[in-house]
Design a protein around this nucleic acid. Structure first.
Lengths: 232, 232
DNA sequence: TTGTCGGCCGATCGCCGACAA
DNA sequence: TTGTCGGCGATCGGCCGACAA
């Protein structure tokens, strides 16, 4: 995934930071077990200390293909004083949920995020593009045309392309995304209160990311008994 | 999940059988590692034999809430000669994909499965009910009415209720499921070639299950690089 | 007996300017 | 500047019998 888009989705303003490879961090087995929904069986490691000083061996930025939820896989090596050669069976792997921020050099880029209003998320409508976003992120419209309109091509965190019809119309005039927008909303299952992030890199390529409101997006659970019957 | 419906979904005619609790089976660590997509790290168990004789400690029938894929979680205890008290950290857990068949006593029930035709899976239409299914599984219609029609209530493997309009019409007459059917097809993401299973237990309660064609339904994968861009 | 098709009708989608906050 | 609304036209979903395999 694109690191910049990943950061924009994770929330650039958030306090947490992704550790740099080679840095030293503490791993808390008990905390990991408590947060993990697929309860790792740590009983065999009962002798473990509460905190284990580890070296960050690898960092992978990931995105869930269904929910676009971003997370980071951070591989920890508990053998602080050994050389760099890593034996996989000695590594512990942990996943942390967003928001987190990657600490890399970072090329310059522009991003703009907006919390979806009812009209934005509503199936009947398009997306009201705030003036700043249209002016600074999207390619300029030809205002000689009537109405000014263009097709915007973007890619999401998986590299999947999306296209939106960007039009400047109405009285008073305003920027709107129409054709293609509802398909995006439905596909991503966006609701009022979720955020959408538009990004432009130095090459002018456009990207789109999403950030969801608190809805849980945990791993798949298997049902072993009858569950709350919702009427079909 | 209902054991009978689970069996019907897994394929009652398949050769495999779910072992009974207490029976003894061989566990093949290498085969497990090969089939598992989330590669278990067995390097710490390098000293294990190729096959380990185990006692079946527990069997759980499960169904994926997203895909309705059925599988069985079989807990194995490698300590054949110890008493029944089980220490969790000594157990190995394995999942097997369908088709499998549960070997329980089994109350009598009737089931009927049909491979979906293009017309069945097509959004535009309903479901052509084969004569045998309508006669032997569904409640009898009132053939004095014109047309004979009723609402069928069923539950899926999760216990979730669905309802279908069952009508006997057309020239020549045939049984069809109309209202409610396409919602079921879309929700379950059924396609031509998938199978649907209708079941009736002795109480007359109806159940519905599905069995998918070869499409992979493995666990969720996280994308770490740009993937095949399909046009939005 | 049942799979597919075209017809047809109603519901929904989605684009629009009008307003007002 | 931008969120929401009512309008409306086009598209699609979905029920139907006809027909043939």
């Amino acid at each position: 995934v694109d690191p910049q888009l990943w950061r924009a989705c994770a929330g650039a303003a958030a306090g947490g930071r992704i550790p740099v490879i080679g840095s030293r961090v503490f791993y808390f087995p008990r905390g990991h077990a408590e947060q993990s929904s697929s309860l790792p069986d740590l009983s065999a490691f009962a002798s473990l200390r509460a905190a284990v000083l580890c070296r960050v061996a690898a960092v992978r930025l990931l995105a869930n293909p269904d929910t676009d939820e971003v997370c980071a896989s951070i591989t920890l090596d508990p053998r602080l004083h050994t050389p760099v050669a890593l034996a996989p069976e000695k590594l512990l792997s942990a996943s942390f949920a967003s928001p987190l921020e990657i600490a890399d050099g970072g090329e310059q880029f522009l991003s703009f995020s907006k919390i979806l209003t009812a009209s934005d998320a509503n199936n009947g409508g398009g997306f009201s593009v705030p003036r700043f976003c249209a002016d600074s992120i999207f390619p300029p419209l030809n205002f000689d045309a009537e109405p000014p309109v263009q097709i915007i091509s973007v890619r999401d965190v998986h590299g999947k392309p999306w296209s939106f019809r960007h039009i400047y119309r109405g009285t008073p005039r305003r920027h709107l995304l129409t054709t293609g927008w509802s398909k995006f909303v439905n596909s991503k299952k966006l609701v009022t209160g979720d955020s959408v992030v538009f990004m432009k890199n130095l090459s002018g390529q456009l990207f789109v990311g999403i950030r969801r409101t608190s809805r849980s997006c945990g791993p798949v659970h298997y049902s072993s008994s009858y569950e709350s019957p919702s009427v079909a």
